[in-house]
Design a protein around this nucleic acid. Sequence first.
DNA 1: CGAGCCCCCTGGGTGC
DNA 2: TGCACCCAGGGGGCTC
Length: 277
Amino acid sequence: MPELPEVETVRVGLEKLVKGHTIISVEVRWEAIVGMSSAEFDHELAGRTIEKIERRGKYLLFRLSGGMTMISHLRMEGAYYTVPTGTAPAKHDEVTFHLDDRDLFYRDTRKFGRMVLVPDEKTMTIAGLAKIGPEPTDDTLTLEYMVAEFAKTKTYIKPFLLDQSHIAGLGNIYVDETLWQTKIHPLQPANSISKRKLGELRRNIIDELARATKHHGTTVHSFTNAFGQAGQFQNELQVYGRVNQPCERCGTPLVKIKVAQRGTTYCPKCQVLKPVK
DNA sequence: CGAGCCCCCTGGGTGC
DNA sequence: TGCACCCAGGGGGCTC
């Protein structure tokens, strides 16, 4: 599932392949993805040039000529890839962007992904982006912010970190990984974590996402970046997908539970629930 | 207003 | 072999 490192990998690939190219026409075969008819979507986009592709959290921002932005969220399995002009779409290729020199396909097996068109200046007003938290980098995610933000609620740390309004870009995989690294139990209330521990968590989140991005992200299930460059970070994961396997720190078999409807893998010995004062 | 739950989807895996 | 069922899960939107 694309989280920040995977989306960034897609962004870099798109910049190489479609930046500077013009959209001739568009066909949509599953209209819920774009929220309008195929004809309307085509009408809005035909003739515009893709000036650059930016990213905020897990959102891709296609900056188009004429002051329009196409916001694209891949959700679970969305993927972009380019093919020679006129290539027939396969079963789950739901959107075709006919560009001036090739076609850009959007594939989405489970049809969860969404594309939204807005004037550039309205980009940060759409649901999801309006309340998005800081990017997990040294400059943008400060310890002072984390201390204040985490103190606001006793929500379990796991769903707290999955909520993009607190910190942008984390998903199920990297939350499990960074909680394991920091030795925090997934059910620990956010406001019960010490400043020292938050400092460690911050360091691990920033470093883990940077490291995963460097490896072109994690390839699980059907996700690939579709640019002939599958991510390699799945080989680096220490808890996700490793239920019943020994903890790499202490050897205890990893346990899997449900937290807020999400599969959650952790080490019952390293990640102990601390009493709340 | 925050927390919890449902829903959107399909393919892969499992049990009978 | 086939069928019914469950699970994977980001995030919008709903209810309480």
